[in-house]
């Protein structure tokens, strides 16, 4: 006789709470609770081999309330933002934005599997906040010095090539009204923290 496996109530509750938490962090309407575990996402994902859980399995873990496992997973950090899964998902789940939300929570709780991705995002955003524009040379130089010293010898001729072709400026471009941008972002940070 086949007996339907029903999650004990405490597991179901933890799962529902976590789904709601991630849903609230997602920018659009995530529809995460609609997942039917079909696996179209993992099957469409060009970086699935590098992930410790495919998106489908990650959503199953979320539903099972395995908050810690999910937030320590490298899956969101391996997401390329290519949106293949999003257009293929039969339930219209905003998978890419859910991955962003998971990264945001992992950033807040420092549960990311390694700091290369978070660092890159942090430096990029720090410069964008300061200047109002991204600063390609400052970002890559700092990032390679911190994380990829062995790649530097290979990168140096490339940087010179880009420089020679006029594709890299040394100084960052800056917007005029940095005060306005920073005031907006300060308020946005407060609102985000107050959630």
């Amino acid at each position: 006789m086949v007996v339907a496996q029903v999650s004990p109530p405490e597991v179901a509750d933890a799962g529902a709470r976590f789904l709601a938490e991630v849903g609230a962090k997602t920018a659009g309407v995530s529809r995460l609770e609609m997942c039917i575990q079909c696996g179209s996402c993992g099957g469409s994902c060009p970086s699935a081999d590098a992930m410790d859980h495919t998106p489908r399995r990650l959503f199953a873990l979320m539903r099972a309330g395995e908050r810690d496992k999910v937030l320590r997973s490298n899956t969101p950090w391996m997401c390329l933002s290519c949106y293949h899964c999003v257009v293929r998902c039969p339930q219209d789940i905003l998978i890419t934005d859910v991955m962003y939300a998971l990264k945001v929570i992992a950033e807040e709780e420092h549960t990311y599997p390694n700091n290369v991705g978070p660092d890159f995002a942090g430096v990029f955003v720090g410069q964008a906040k300061r200047f109002g524009r991204s600063w390609e040379i400052g970002l890559t130089a700092r990032h390679y010095l911190r994380h990829f010293i062995p790649r530097l010898p290979g990168m140096t001729p490339m940087a010179f090539g880009l420089f020679r072709h006029g594709r890299i400026g040394i100084l960052p471009h800056q917007i005029k009204d940095k005060k306005q941008l920073q005031a907006i972002l300060r308020r946005a940070d407060e609102l985000e923290r107050a959630r």
């Binding site: 962003y100 990264k103 945001v104 940070d189």
Partner: peptide, 18 residues
């Protein structure tokens, strides 16, 4: 100003969209 690429949305939601 910069749109934040895929980096700001990975860091914080409201500020990224603001």
């Amino acid at each position: 100003n910069c749109c934040g690429a895929t980096e700001y949305v990975s860091l914080s939601t409201t500020p990224a969209y603001a």
